[in-house]
Design a protein around this nucleic acid. Structure first.
Length: 572
RNA sequence: GCGCCUGUAGCUCAGUGGAUCAGAGCAUUGGUCUUCGAAACCAAGGGUCGCAGGUUCGAAUCCUGCCAGGCGCACCA
């Protein structure tokens, strides 16, 4: 909010100064930021340093000229100055800060939202876990991450579709069917060892037996067919079974989808064939060893060495790569402006291939944006567990979810940048559930609610237009400064597709409040509910807005904002 | 071997060209509850930002090389 105001001031100042000084440079993409050192002011800009080069002047000379012609029609600036290598530092009047609060108050539960997206259509694909095993913690990270990226884009004015791409055909599904069949035979003939599951050929997790038991119940009559048909039926049954389970897990994580796209549907619709034909016509394919390979311009011989470039197998069936191209083309045809994929890092090699393919088909590859997140590793004690559905060795998302709860689960997975490798220490998560950062933020919210409960007991009501000038303690002005940054943070997180900024922001805000609140123990003038009516009303107004901001931020990341904290009170 | 990601305090991680930028939380140590919730607050110790070069007025941040770790490199998805 204040950043925008300063941007406007600097923009106008630049215009006037250019005119008066005869500058010919264009307005650079300057930054407006909160300096780390508060002595430097409320906000600072690097505009003078950026202008120095094109104008062939020293940064400080540019800065001085800008300050001479400063445009501040609203009179919100209290101080301005030039510092260091050429930074412009600004301090605002108290009144300017205080006035921002009424804007936040008016925004209510729209606070933090904006319209920069201009209603553009964006589809965001996430989770998309293969239905060949339970959702495990390694790639469950994509759930909260995709969900919050979607929320960020909604908040900033995009029209968002949340999509799950279900890989329900292919070799992995065949393998699933075979695994279930194998297990089913073992169940039916416990004495007679027909075939033991083999790690290379079968999924061996205990869930396979679970599915086999369910299949025995539900499909008993339908399995009197030949072996290939049995495998097919069981594969289909397994997909359905596991997909329902994944959906339940997503639901428990607070994640939902607007659209499910089945790979099978794309295959059946012939879109894949159409795309393969088109690619052939464009001359970006080659045949080798009986298979059809994608060989984009400039790829040279490498494409033929890369087995993942195969579009059509030598047996004539298209690969998932071919289907994926068709899937993305479908998105272009649905007129999405942005196609965002949230994928596990193991797909990194896939990204440039899909982009090269859609480019060859005449679509703008830049519209595909991919967020690759690094896998979560789970530590149990001193052991790092490797995630592998094949080895049946994994920690499920559900296990962790049940252990630490939805709020901590989401917060924890969200508070790290996607590119950062994240170790989830189960023992620590359990032990420290009381100390988990999510509780810190929630506690701040609950405390604020508590103040209002107290006020209500005393018959004090929140005034719609209190005397804001009463909010002049330095800590209060700092809180206001933090609150008004919330929309900027949301915007930044949305622009960069970086959800982790929100938990960090909330922690900073919660900390500032907790610190402020605690001062009341030493000094009564920090008490919200004090003796002076005007001051009390003003402080309540600030607290109300703080509460709203925390609630908005928590809502954005899908974490609950409790009115009271229950359980685990250590204070006797 | 090739490709992507990562290397910042004991641990988990923020910080992607700016000035006191060496940061947060946890852990450790020491203080603070008759007063709006101590799930809190205040304070202290702790790091050659993996290493070496380079670009720049200026580098944790950009480039190159090396070292270490993770993940890919299936006619699987």
């Amino acid at each position: 909010m204040m950043k925008e105001k300063l941007r406007k001031i600097l923009h106008d100042t630049f215009q006037i100064t250019s005119q008066k000084e005869g500058w010919s440079a264009s307005l650079p993409a300057f930054e407006v930021e909160r300096p780390k050192v508060k002595e430097h002011g409320d906000l600072s800009s690097n505009i003078a340093m950026l202008l120095a080069r094109p104008l062939k002047l020293a940064p400080r000379v540019v800065g001085e000229a800008l300050l001479r012609h400063l445009q501040d029609p609203e009179q919100i600036l209290a101080q301005s100055g030039l510092a260091g290598a050429g930074f412009l530092n600004f301090r605002f009047k108290k009144e300017a800060w205080q006035q921002l609060l009424s804007q936040v108050y008016a925004a209510g539960d729209r606070f933090g939202t904006s319209k920069v997206g201009q209603g553009k259509k964006v589809v965001i694909e996430y989770v998309s876990a293969n239905p060949t095993g339970p959702l495990h913690i390694g790639n469950a990270r994509g759930g909260p991450m995709g969900d919050v990226i979607a929320a960020l884009l909604q908040w900033t004015g995009y029209q968002v579709v949340r999509e799950y791409y279900l890989n329900d055909v292919g070799g992995q599904i065949d393998k699933l069917g075979e695994s279930i069949l194998c297990e089913l035979r073992a169940i039916e003939n416990p004495d007679q060892i027909t075939e033991t599951p083999q790690a290379e050929r079968h999924y061996t997790g205990s869930y396979v037996r679970e599915i086999a038991l369910a299949a025995q119940q539900e499909l008993s009559g339908k399995l009197k067919v030949d072996e290939e048909e049995q495998k097919r039926i069981l594969g289909k049954f397994g997909v359905q079974f596991l997909f329902e389970e994944i959906k339940r897990d997503c639901d428990a994580m607070g994640i939902s989808f607007d659209s499910y796209v089945h790979e099978k549907t794309i295959l059946v619709s012939q879109l894949t064939d159409e795309m393969i034909k088109l690619l052939k016509e464009r001359g970006v394919t080659q045949e080798k060893e009986g298979a059809l390979w994608f060989t984009p311009e400039g790829a040279g011989e490498d494409a033929l060495a890369d087995r993942e470039s195969v579009l059509v197998r030598s047996d004539g069936r298209p690969t998932y790569f071919a289907n994926d191209i068709a899937y993305h083309v479908g998105k272009y045809r649905n007129h999405y402006d942005r196609l965002i994929n949230v994928w596990g890092s193991n797909h990194h090699g896939h990204v440039p291939r899909v982009q090269a393919a859609v480019k060859a088909l005449g679509f703008d590859p830049q519209r595909i944006e991919t967020v690759l997140y690094q896998y979560v590793r789970v530590k149990r004690g001193n052991d790092l567990l490797k995630m592998s559905k094949r080895a049946g060795n994994y920690v499920t998302a559900r296990e962790v979810l049940d252990e630490v709860g939805k709020d901590a689960f989401r917060f924890f997975l969200l508070m790290r940048a996607a590119s950062s490798h994240l170790d989830f220490d189960l023992e620590l998560a359990k032990q420290q559930s009381q100390e988990n950062p999510v509780y810190y933020v929630q506690y701040a919210h609950a405390r604020l609610c508590s103040i209002f409960r107290k006020a209500s007991e005393q018959g004090i009501k929140l005034a719609a237009q209190p005397a804001l000038e009463k909010l002049d303690l330095p800590e209060e002005l700092r809180l206001i400064a933090l609150i008004q940054e919330f929309p900027d943070e949301v915007l930044l997180a949305a622009e960069r597709l970086e959800p982790h900024r929100i938990p960090f922001y909330l922690l900073e805000l919660a900390q500032a409040f907790q610190s402020y609140y605690s001062l009341a123990k030493q000094d009564p003038k920090y008490r919200v509910l004090g003796s002076d009516v005007d001051t009390t009303q003003a402080k309540m107004y600030l607290c109300h807005i703080l509460k709203t901001t925390l609630a908005q931020g928590l809502k954005l990341i899908g974490v609950t904002a409790p009115e009271i904290m229950t359980g685990g009170l250590t204070h006797e």
